[in-house]
Amino acid sequence: MALRSGPMSRLLLPGRTLIQRFAYLFLLLGAVGLMLVGKADVVLVERARTAVIDATAPILDFLSRPAAKVAAAIEDVRQLWDLRQEVDRLRQENERLLRWQQAARQLESENAQLRELMNVVPEPGVRFVTARVIADAGGAFVRSLLVNAGGRDGVRKGQIAMTAQGMVGRVAEVGDRQARVLLVTDLNSRIPVMLESSRERAMLSGDNAERPRLQYLGTNARVEVGDRIVTSGHGGAFPPGLPIGLVASASDWEVRVQPYVDMSRLEYIRLVDFQLDGILLEADRSLARSPGRR
């Protein structure tokens, strides 16, 4: 692959090289300065990010459409291979689910009756927005998504991102037309959870691996592979009982959880407003409440 060399031999003159080197040094110092500023003034960085992403959201939206199409086509071809098996599996699953549906209906009516008897305070209403994933930013270092719904669609910081299978993450930044969702697998994600069967409390902390870790389990807690993990609702940031995943591996020093949702193939997610703002700071809270402002 031989290439024509352009008219830039003048760049290699010694004087220019010296100036060039100084320019690099200057720009590199600028980069280091940016890192320090980013560490010190989180709000400023977040504003800048939101502005840039807002400006590029239409382009990202445009780019994500063919990508989704290609992914769907690949998936189609793959599914053709094992269509028959899939039908069988779904038929069985359908049967099982119908039985569950019956059970759920019974429980629902029983629950309603009991609530009425006990005079339980009703949970606040739940609203949600469904949004399309327009970018999965971050690569190997950050687990977050951009979705094409933002402040003007009613998305607020702290809302929970879910699919039908379970929890995906939490809204971390909100722009006008887009929002950033921090996935449960991200390095910065900490979610108070419990084991559904034993009600044992723990903290689900992401470390950018596909399976987040379960930390701060009680010393006598018994964890087994396959245990269901749900949110505990402690701290007031997440409602209790949202499904997150199953215990995938449990050893003496580490317990890892496989989320129900396959984070690599998200296309549409729901951003649910449970009307909770336990983790937001006082300043954020006023922002979160006044719509139309960032």
């Binding site: 300065g33 990010r49 930013a137």
Partner: peptide
């Protein structure tokens, strides 16, 4: 700014 990694 777009990728969400440390600025700079």
């Amino acid at each position: 700014l777009l990728g969400g990694v440390i600025i700079g």
